[in-house]
Design a protein around this nucleic acid. Structure first.
Lengths: 223, 223
DNA sequence: TCATAAATAATAGTAATACTATCAAAAATA
DNA sequence: TATTTTTGATAGTATTACTATTATTTATGA
């Protein structure tokens, strides 16, 4: 059985829906590749335009600026992650098992979704790890937040918080623990790659380090 | 008794020691004020030059770019924080008390240090919360790391990890828990201010929320 | 079918940012 | 006193982030 999952990303993020045209799709796909390669700071619309053989003005027609484009990519990621959590927890009744699944999803590359036009999941994962905090750690956070552009993040956070509450109903900080889980998944992965002295990673457990740490943390905090 | 604490910041961070001249001191002091006001992205050397009535070139003589200037400010913060932890734990023998002190330090404004030429601690605290991750979440992280510019962060992390190990010697992730503590202190404070739905903050516990959450987390993870 | 309107991309700008090179004055040293 | 070094000021350039205008294509409807 083949099926395809698509997400309606909040239309306040873009000026024109990138899903509505071929160039639009190319913009998002190539933005992920180029942002992975250059990092958010060195990524520019000019460079993206050259990569997809169009002009800067064309990209500006779809996105106000590169911050909005990153926000679009992350919204897509948060929506996909929420879907994956929901999907993978179908028919799982064991609550510890649910939490383990969540940790695994947060600390591993996204599975390839079918569909001829797909984003590079390895690159997307690295962008989430290294760049995601840059969308809210800005002076304009209140202004941006008004358009509900962080709703998918809040939804994902609330979804995980519900599983935490299910596991331990009297735990007082389910949402903070949930957001800590998400954020820690990112920075522990980043640290274990680039600043390993800030972690307890070793050569042997490189790949599984973050999920081991988070599982241990979670099951010690709770119960 | 009056005393003053100063820190030798790694000289790879600056081109010319800002402590060595009056303009240099003005650059750092006013950078903190202006970076707080504008946020790192909108902060420029031009604007800083106007604020202290000098030229851009003067500032470039001290710091290669604004990233280095932020790194200098954070190095100062990390050194000061390590000093404070050491200082406040003098004569404290009770290990749980030590951990509580660390959490309190990480989640509250820095105390004013004496000295006629002092940085604005309220502003510095907000910069640490909102901008600190931007110094390492860059493509050049490996290159930058070679000059040991993150050493004060690693030292602070190791210092807290030692207290964790003292409390529970067989805990496997003392350094990761330590860096998670530091990072979580930042983003939970940020979230409770700007994106409260990602936390369990309430109107009543606004000020103490992050320390309550972290204390609870820490004492449940350990033992 | 053809005229007209609307949508789109390309061209060509501008203002601001992130630097660099040069120069002149002041300070330090020999 | 002469000479070197350090300093800040001036005046640039390349890139970035965006905008306005124009040309072309596409859609619509009489």
């Amino acid at each position: 059985m083949e099926f395809q999952v698509t997400f309606r990303v909040n239309d306040k993020i873009y000026l024109r829906d990138p899903e509505s045209s071929e160039v639009g799709k190319q913009i998002v796909k190539n933005a992920i590749d180029l942002m992975y390669e250059l990092g958010f700071e060195h990524f520019t619309f000019k460079k993206l335009a050259i990569a997809i053989h169009c002009t800067e003005a064309t990209i500006y027609r779809y996105f106000e600026n590169k911050h909005r484009l990153l926000l679009y990519i992350l919204n897509w990621y948060w929506c996909y992650m929420e879907f994956l959590v929901m999907f993978k927890l179908q028919n799982v009744t064991d609550t510890p098992e649910k939490l383990k699944t969540v940790v695994h999803l947060l600390t591993h590359e996204l599975p390839e979704s079918s569909g001829q036009f797909d984003y590079n999941k390895k690159f997307l994962n690295q962008i989430v790890i290294a760049e995601s905090s840059k969308v809210y750690l800005v002076k304009e956070v209140n202004e941006i937040n008004k358009n509900e552009v962080f709703k998918p993040y809040k939804d994902l956070c609330a979804q995980i918080a519900r599983i935490i509450s299910e596991y331990q109903p009297d735990y007082l900080y389910s949402k903070s623990l949930s957001s800590t889980l998400i954020e820690t998944a990112h920075h522990q992965q980043f640290f274990s790659m680039y600043l390993p002295k800030l972690t307890d990673v070793s050569v042997e457990n490189q790949a599984e380090f973050t999920s081991l740490f988070l599982e241990n943390l979670l099951f010690n905090v709770l119960r």
